[in-house]
Design a protein around this nucleic acid. Structure first.
Lengths: 166, 166
DNA sequence: CTTGACTCTGTAGTGGCTACAGGTTGTCAA
DNA sequence: TTGACAACCTGTAGCCACTACAGAGTCAAG
């Protein structure tokens, strides 16, 4: 209380840019989480700016930490639910996490198989020749009936997740 | 020519459903590839149905094979360009493939690090207790400043790619 | 009083499909 | 002949987790 002008970092009354800096989250993403109901709508200043308290920073950190562990927002929503009911039993947290670890392990297995296939494909052409005789292009034209990439809800090698980095 | 009613599978004059069956590709996806310019628009029947020849099936197989290797449509577009110019040099094919192998390897490394983090997190809570004391939830609330998940254009564990399977 | 950094809302785009809605065409049996 | 039904057509919206604007408002410093 009575925090007025100072405390520029991690103070009680942050504007969105400061929260962004403190948590390493783009401003747009914070507003997105609010729209999605992951982060409660904060108080507003006279000029309609969002004013965040430490509790918001904490919750946002939780969310970002989970995201850095590649959990979906749905999974995070679930975890937040458990977090918000402290009397509840955390067995389901374990279950959720185990399931997530399973997803990651499955994706690693898939990617390893993929890597093997790609390397074997690469073996088919070692030097640059004319494309008509390129073993790689010819091999790719074969109608192979191998059912890789079943379902697993895992994600492509090339990514949607750009960078959290900061 | 003079193929009339018979040749139900892999004949010269397929309708979209048959092409879908032959290549294991959903009908909607075939139309999508056409819109995207990956697959040439085929001839049309009197009743405006798409009529495909074997060349289309071959090209679609190529595309699907590449997709099963988790290449992006942009990468596939490039490969098709090389394929369409048979006099061209395939050195760039090698380059593209090497880059793609690099992406996969990088993603595997990332996921292994992720798996390790998740397992260590899981260690924090072995039995179901009340959520307020759950080591996992508490750990996730920590503001850790580790910059996993840089960029790499790799993809989440949970996936956009549903299933190609058939 | 002006500049410029920050904030606001709302909307559109990303990739690679998928899932409709609402219509047309083709095929077969009764 | 009719009537049912599958397969086809176009067009549009939705998925996920953001990202990137446009166009307007707010605020502190010089």
């Amino acid at each position: 209380m009575l925090a007025t002008a100072f405390t520029p970092a991690e103070g009680e009354n942050m504007k969105i840019g400061e929260l962004a800096g403190v948590t390493g989250t783009p401003v747009e993403t914070i507003r997105y989480y609010e729209r999605e109901g992951l982060l409660a709508a904060p108080a507003r200043s006279e000029g309609n700016f969002r004013i965040y308290a430490d509790a918001h920073a904490e919750r946002l950190s939780f969310i970002r930490h989970c995201r850095s562990l590649d959990m979906t927002l749905a999974e995070i929503r679930e975890l937040l639910r458990f977090k918000d009911v402290p009397t509840g039993n955390c067995g389901e947290v374990n279950t959720l996490l185990d399931a997530h670890i399973g997803h990651v392990a499955a994706r690693i297995r898939e990617l390893r198989a993929l890597e093997k296939q790609l390397k074997s494909l690469r073996e088919r052409c070692h030097e640059a020749q004319d494309a008509a005789h390129c073993g790689i292009l010819n091999e790719l034209s074969q109608t192979s009936r191998n059912g890789t990439k079943k379902a697993g809800h895992l994600g492509s090698v090339h990514g949607n997740v750009r960078n959290v980095m900061a």
